[in-house]
Write a protein that binds this DNA or RNA. Structure first.
Lengths: 267, 267
DNA sequence: ATCCATAAATAGTATGACTATACGGGAAGA
DNA sequence: TCTTCCCGTATAGTCATACTATTTATGGAT
């Protein structure tokens, strides 16, 4: 993140940059690239429910003032957010925040913007269900289809987990990479698209579990078994290892999933 | 589709609309809304490999002339395409088409733009694998979680299939809707995001299978069994019905999947 | 031959003006 | 009084132009 996360809305550039009044020598007029900052700021404000679902954002000209940028930048940012399903613009009505059912949950940026709020809407539960459904199959496919290089990459990721030692952060990072490589090695393009959401979920859940040393040792063993199964092209073993992996995830996440499943959609 | 599909690139508006030369009474200057048309045209041209992966699109000012629109429209269209992972713009370099691995395959518009080319990259095979992985689980979840309304909607979709008679088109439409409602009834938000891709794949594959009367009768039976299982809240039966459904899909699509799996990614 | 400065090309930003669209209220009609 | 239609108005959509930032390519100096 190269943006001030958590910042309140406000000028994105240090230079207010109003029209250069007077016929002076025209000071150079700085024009930094602020598109990403504005998009991120708006995305964060939407995902944090600062602009709740169904309400309208300030009109474009107001957003220009708020962030101190031109309408060009604001409009292009809104177009990006609209493409992600976050908002919907209509003349005379304004730009309204879409229902969460329309949000593109597989979008990495949205998940980043949601941050800890990923726990809303049972999202963590949904993702865990998806992992339990998809990952064992992906592991089985990977056993058949993974290239030698991909298996080596998996082993390298495992080694990074192993060598992380007491560094929980590094351990989690390697763990996430492991699962991304696995999805890729399944050679199913749809599965690979799920990487982003699994990435986000793991970053917010693995970290906790991985703080327990015992758990990390157990995870290391299972991950190694999976790599070994891929090397032997043993689909059943790979599937079994993946299942074990997810069972421990369920066990460790159970406390965080309290509250049962509610109807989260607007039907 | 409210756009001239298959059209070559060219002015999107009938009115060339150059700058009104002279100090005349300023003829009204038509300004139709052309954003969607331009985006669609560019999307089609990219997905049809008119602009192959890795190559650069014409520069923005050229695109303005090509489509007879302002740079604003072109830029916002490119921003949309960039958000979908189709292109990537950089100063001095231009706007280059991204590798297909970065395309957002879960995006309904992209799938629409790909049209029959959905068969490239083993996409049809990947989607079928995904369905076989996800749909039975979704059916099982739906058995537990579907609302009465959702089950009624499923039954209504089934009835539309039943009543379609010889209208293959209507039958396929209802069939697709059935599967979308099922995914929604699983009350797993990630599963629901898969609707778009399953929708596209079914529209391009079911149509063929559904032309055979025998198959349609069989499909009707299985779909009814699934609804019945949901009504009885029998997860195992729902799962079994879904499995049977997909087995017939595999059987019917087998001819279209010849050629085996190749490595489609650029690793 | 290598490296650095300069130039050129292209996307990014800014501004102001106009148009199309859709909501809301008021007038005309039942 | 209620309904329908029209029109004013607010807001996003489009257009044109000018300028800035960034990156590649070129050419010259070491």
């Amino acid at each position: 993140m190269d943006v001030d996360t958590g910042m309140e809305t406000g000028p994105v550039t240090g230079q207010a940059g109003g029209p250069d009044a007077g016929g002076e020598i025209a000071p150079p007029a700085r024009r930094p690239r602020v598109q990403k900052n504005v998009t991120t700021a708006l995305g964060l404000d939407i995902c944090s429910e600062r602009y709740p679902v169904g309400t309208a954002l300030p009109k474009e000209s107001d957003l220009c003032e708020l962030y101190g940028v031109s309408r060009t930048v604001v409009r292009e940012s809104l177009k990006i957010l609209a493409t992600k399903g976050l908002v919907n613009s209509r003349p005379r009505v304004g730009t309204v925040v879409c229902d969460k059912a329309e949000w593109n949950l597989l979008d990495a940026q949205i998940l980043e913007w949601m941050g800890p709020r990923i726990q809303d809407l049972d999202l963590l539960g949904c993702i865990l269900e998806t992992r339990r459904t998809v990952e064992p199959v992906a592991a089985e496919f990977a056993a058949e289809r993974a290239s030698v290089q991909e298996i080596a990459d998996l082993e390298a990721a495992w080694k990074r987990m192993h060598d992380a030692g007491p560094d929980t952060e590094a351990f989690t990072r390697a763990d996430v990479q492991f699962h991304e490589i696995l999805l890729k090695a399944s050679h199913n393009q749809v599965f690979r698209q799920l990487s982003s959401i699994i990435h986000a979920a793991l970053m917010y859940s693995l970290h906790r579990s991985n703080e327990v040393i015992d758990h990390r040792d157990e995870a290391l063993d299972i991950h190694r078994d999976l790599v070994e199964a891929l090397r032997l092209r043993d689909g059943a073993a790979a599937r079994a290892a993946s299942h074990r992996m997810l069972d421990t995830a369920v066990r460790d996440l159970a406390p965080a999933l309290r509250g049962g499943r509610q109807d989260a959609d607007g039907s």
